[in-house]
Nucleic acid binder design. Structure first.
Lengths: 232, 232
DNA sequence: GAAGATTGACTTGTATGGAAGTATGGAGCA
DNA sequence: TGCTCCATACTTCCATACAAGTCAATCTTC
């Protein structure tokens, strides 16, 4: 498969290799740098990164649990195509979690948090025009900030896992996705947190997280080769 | 450590050993069969089950991700004590997910599902008197049925991971936990699903999942040695 | 007797070799 | 030409060996 054409994905031989490799491979899969549907094998990756097969195997197992690859013993391991059903389920769970998080934040209405969020909003608007990839980073930071501010840092670990499924879709269509709209939705959430309006805050974040529902069919129609759906 | 005194926890050499061992060890930890705070090592477990270190290692990694053990490289691996903070966070996330699931089910109000749930309620009442451990199984089945009926089978995978933290607390005090009350709460949820009352359904499941909040302090006070809290 | 250095028995992380199963391509035959 | 069989090259899974770090007890030294 097309493992070559790497860039700065280097790993530090001083710290445990397995987890490092897991992050690297996940990133490459989510960004569609590693093409979905293609095969990938332990010795191949091991040789490429000049490490043994054991850490590779451990990374593979984690990727498999996230639903990004499919390990078929004695057959092969393939990078799964995007399963739109899995994306929808991840989105459902994520909406449920973040809705409760935002409700919690609205009951508190912490001024320090609001100021931090507004600073992030400004930064989002600054990069909104030109850099979609960078915006995705800022978006992740925004949602992580919400989770951690609710004293549920543990909750973010789950949301993070759910995001990888959704992010695969996003990276498919970096060009057309409506950053100004998303920023406005972020702003609505912050406003409701500030005013302490629970119901409005909840519906604002739920609306925001439903955005992908409208985009998904389009993106899937444009890039059918990246989705499993009926085929296979 | 006290790995001996096993019972029927045997593994099938025909199917992959790593995942099997993971389930077995998780079960033993959750049931406090393996004492929290004690050390556990790869070669020890490998020798006991007459397998190599490799599958054991894979099981350990998974347990570590669930927050049940703590792997300290070159030092040792210990079975984590119950972190009441982690329990609370798991509970929070679980409530959020299941609340949305039940809301979804109430909008549909599927008679077939309701009949299935009522059958489970009857079974719960049948064993309620004598067998707390069996009740926990039925309780898990009840909640899993809800998740799967919402066409979000994927969501259950997450709830399952969250449950392990909460179940550790439950197994600490099998004697005093109010099965009739819990069954009544289950029944309230089913009733609301049947009548299609979204708001009532949501508050019913949320109330049900808040039950552990009242029990946790008591249980922790009675069994302080199983909790981390202040000490380390 | 007390404090410090050292050796040895642990721990987990990584590397490598063998075993069992599967897919594939070519040879042989009808 | 088309089908069957078989050998070979893959794959993942498990076992074993080595490497590097940590901890504790013991021995030495003051």
């Amino acid at each position: 498969m097309q493992l070559r054409r790497d860039r700065a994905w280097d790993l530090d031989p001083e710290s445990p290799i397995g987890p490092q490799l897991h992050r690297i491979l996940r990133e490459r899969i989510v960004r569609n740098d590693l093409i979905s549907g293609s095969k990938i094998s332990e010795p191949e990756v091991a040789k490429y990164y000049s490490i043994s097969r054991q850490p590779v195997r451990e990374a593979f197992i984690k990727l498999s649990e996230e639903g990004l690859i499919s390990i078929r013993p004695q057959r092969s391991t393939v990078i799964k195509k995007i399963d739109s059903e899995a994306v929808l389920q991840a989105r459902f769970v994520r909406e449920a979690i973040e809705a409760d998080i935002v409700k919690l934040l609205a009951t508190r209405s912490d001024p320090v948090l609001v100021r931090e969020l507004r600073a992030q909003l400004a930064e989002q608007e600054r990069v909104a025009a030109g850099n979609p990839a960078q915006f995705i980073r800022l978006d992740e930071r925004f949602h992580r900030t919400l989770a951690e501010a609710s004293d549920n840092a543990g909750a973010w670990k789950f949301v993070e896992g759910l995001k990888s499924q959704m992010d695969r879709v996003r990276f498919l269509s970096l060009s057309f996705f409506p950053m100004p709209k998303l920023i406005a939705q972020h702003k609505a959430v912050v406003d409701c947190i500030e005013t302490g309006d629970l119901a409005q805050a909840e519906s604002a974040i739920r609306l925001h997280l439903k955005e992908i529902l409208t985009d998904l069919p389009e993106i899937q129609a444009v890039n059918p080769e990246f989705f499993s759906q009926v085929s296979e």
